[in-house]
Computed example of a mutant assay.
Amino acid sequence: MWFTLKGVLLWTMHDYPGYAQVSGFQTSGYAACPTCGPALPVARSSHLSKQVYMSYSTFLPMDDPLRGTGAERNTTEPPIPLDMYWWEQRWRDVEEGHIPAERAGLKRWSILHRLPYWKDLMIQHLLDPMHIEANVTKSLIKRIFGKKDGKPARRACEEFGVHPEAWIQVSDGGIESLPPTPWILTTEERKICKKRISEIRFPTGFGSCLRKSFEKDGPKWPSALKSHNYHILLQYVLPICLQGLGTQYLRDAICDLSVLMRWVCSKTIRIAEIDEKELFAITTFSSSRKTNQVPFSTRIHA
């Protein structure tokens, strides 16, 4: 007996760079958020030669104190989420030359849109949280271990008026110096952090390679770590091993980020918790920028 078998593509699953390749949307630069589109708060740093995203308070409730006070208060309302019909018209405008391609938010119109039902799906692409979490953790560790520190980063802080304690100081003789920053651990603190990780006794098969990677002496961070290692580090290890190291603001921010990622990666997520956790994420990044103490406040789009 013969019958017709039909298949339906419901969604795709990939990390964030893969999301850009499959969907055709931009995930960096201007209009890098498919939800916000051109309304994404973004600024170009001439010293870093890249775009930075810092206006997290835009996504907070209008009466939230983290929006600021007086003349510095952020009165911008959150962008309206965009749907596929809006992006379809956007791509037509790009093809007709009405909008510059580099600021369109689209690199190409995905072949998936040939499916008649694709634009009506509520969820088209699923993101792999572990690989995204690994990239965030790598960036965070490079910053607190001083690997991303330098004159361009300090000048970028001065360019945007954040982290004044990190601005380059010039002596009377014209010599520039980099003052210590509250988010970079000292050499001794880095050694202590690595030593604590190497002494942790993990369950069998859970993080044994972490101990081996951190057994070597010295302040440098090991390079041979996999995505799952960074997953364990952020969610369980760093909040413990950083106790007593760095500033209280830094430790609190990393603990909040750890709590957030544990919730994102949990097996069961209650619908009633989604709005609460979304606000918690925005508050975490907004408060980190307001205190001028945490390094990831200029890198992650809420």
Results as ranks from 00 to 15, higher is better:
residue 5 L to T: 04
residue 6 K to V: 12
residue 7 G to R: 09
residue 8 V to I: 10
residue 8 V to L: 14
residue 11 W to C: 12
residue 18 G to A: 03
residue 18 G to V: 06
residue 20 A to T: 02
residue 20 A to E: 14
residue 29 G to K: 00
residue 30 Y to C: 00
residue 30 Y to E: 03
residue 33 C to L: 09
residue 34 P to N: 11
residue 38 P to A: 08
residue 39 A to Q: 14
residue 41 P to S: 06
residue 41 P to T: 06
residue 43 A to H: 10
residue 49 S to K: 09
residue 58 T to E: 12
residue 59 F to R: 08
residue 60 L to F: 11
residue 60 L to E: 11
residue 63 D to C: 06
residue 66 L to R: 12
residue 68 G to W: 09
residue 71 A to R: 15
residue 73 R to V: 04
residue 75 T to K: 09
residue 79 P to I: 08
residue 84 M to H: 08
residue 84 M to G: 07
residue 85 Y to C: 14
residue 88 E to V: 06
residue 90 R to D: 04
residue 93 D to N: 15
residue 95 E to D: 10
residue 97 G to D: 13
residue 100 P to D: 15
residue 104 A to K: 01
residue 124 Q to S: 07
residue 127 L to P: 00
residue 131 H to V: 11
residue 133 E to I: 01
residue 141 I to A: 00
residue 148 K to S: 13
residue 149 D to F: 07
residue 151 K to C: 04
residue 153 A to C: 11
residue 153 A to T: 15
residue 154 R to A: 12
residue 156 A to F: 15
residue 158 E to H: 15
residue 159 E to M: 13
residue 166 A to N: 05
residue 170 V to P: 00
residue 172 D to M: 08
residue 173 G to F: 04
residue 177 S to Y: 07
residue 178 L to V: 05
residue 180 P to S: 13
residue 181 T to V: 14
residue 186 T to N: 02
residue 187 T to C: 05
residue 189 E to Q: 14
residue 190 R to S: 04
residue 190 R to A: 03
residue 191 K to S: 10
residue 193 C to L: 15
residue 195 K to V: 01
residue 198 S to N: 06
residue 200 I to S: 04
residue 204 T to S: 11
residue 205 G to K: 07
residue 218 G to L: 09
residue 219 P to C: 07
residue 227 S to H: 01
residue 231 H to E: 15
residue 232 I to V: 13
residue 236 Y to D: 12
residue 243 Q to V: 09
residue 245 L to W: 04
residue 246 G to K: 02
residue 249 Y to H: 11
residue 250 L to P: 04
residue 252 D to R: 05
residue 259 V to W: 07
residue 260 L to N: 09
residue 264 V to M: 13
residue 264 V to S: 05
residue 265 C to R: 07
residue 267 K to N: 11
residue 268 T to K: 13
residue 268 T to H: 15
residue 269 I to A: 03
residue 269 I to N: 03
residue 274 I to S: 00
residue 279 L to N: 14
residue 286 S to W: 04
residue 286 S to I: 12
residue 289 R to F: 07
residue 289 R to G: 11
residue 297 S to M: 14
residue 298 T to A: 10
residue 299 R to E: 11
